[in-house]
Amino acid sequence: MTITMYGITNCDTIKKARVWLESRDVPYRFHDYRAEGIEAGKLNGWVGKVGWEILLNKASTTFRELADKDKQGLDEKKAKALMLAKPTMIKRPVLELGDRVLVGFKPDVYEQAVK
């Protein structure tokens, strides 16, 4: 099973998740949103699996700095457009394990997922 972690390098949660995986010798590939962006097809796939409400990080600095008009009337289409334009609004990490998608870092969930 190929594992890919999506996020940004300087995120504290990403750092914790990476340490967790590496300390258990779990091989993974890291995809940095800032350096590589995110493809619409990939984002659409995640939204289909976990929902845009889970993926959109309303607590992120990027989201909080948006104009009020951009935050109002959020629906799937608007949320996806925001996340594609500024991928740092996507909750971190997103972990792809084959056809499964995990959002956020919870050691107990990771433990079950990588068995």
Rank of each mutant, 00 (worst) to 15 (best):
L95N: 07
G104L: 07
L97M: 13
L84F: 09
R24A: 07
Y33F: 15
K86L: 02
A81I: 06
V26A: 11
G51T: 05
A40R: 14
K42E: 10
A85Q: 14
W46N: 06
Q72Y: 02
K69F: 11
R24S: 05
T4K: 13
T2N: 12
R34L: 08
E96Y: 02
Y6M: 10
F30T: 02
G51P: 10
R18I: 04
A79R: 00
L102D: 08
D70H: 09
K77R: 14
V47M: 14
D99Y: 00
C11D: 11
M89Y: 04
V114G: 00
I3D: 01
V114A: 02
E96N: 03
P27I: 04
L55W: 02
K106C: 03
D68F: 01
K49I: 02
R92K: 13
F63N: 01
K106S: 03
L82F: 01
T13F: 04
G73V: 08
A85G: 11
P27D: 13
K91W: 10
G37R: 09
T2F: 10
Y110A: 08
V101E: 04
I14H: 10
Y28K: 09
E22H: 09
A81C: 07
A67W: 04
P107F: 05
V19A: 15
Y33S: 07
I14D: 06
I38T: 07
G48E: 06
L43R: 11
T13N: 06
L84M: 08
K69A: 15
K15Y: 04
V101P: 01
R18T: 10
S23H: 06
G48A: 06
E96F: 00
E53W: 03
N57G: 03
M1D: 04
A40F: 06
N44W: 06
I3K: 12
A81H: 07
G7Q: 10
I8A: 04
R18M: 11
V109S: 07
L74I: 07
K77Y: 00
P107I: 03
T4Q: 12
E96C: 07
D70N: 11
A59S: 15
I54V: 15
N57E: 02
K71E: 00
M83L: 08
D75S: 05
S60D: 06
G73E: 09
V109Y: 07
E65P: 00
K69Y: 09
E39T: 05
K42A: 05
G48S: 05
A35I: 12
W46R: 11
L66Y: 01
V103H: 10
I54M: 14
E111F: 07
D25M: 08
G51A: 09
Y6W: 11
K49M: 05
K80T: 08
A35M: 13
W52T: 03
A40V: 00
L66F: 01
A67K: 14
I54E: 14
P107A: 08
F30C: 06
R64T: 03
D25G: 12
W52Q: 08
P87S: 01
R64L: 13
V109T: 15
K78V: 06
H31D: 08
I38M: 12
M5R: 10
K86N: 14
E39I: 00
Y28E: 03
D32Q: 12
E39S: 12
V109F: 05
A85L: 11
T2S: 13
V101H: 04
R100H: 13
T61F: 03
K42D: 04
I90R: 08
M89Q: 05
H31I: 05
V109M: 11
G51Q: 10
T4R: 13
T9C: 00
L97C: 12
L102W: 09
V94C: 12
D68G: 01
S60C: 00
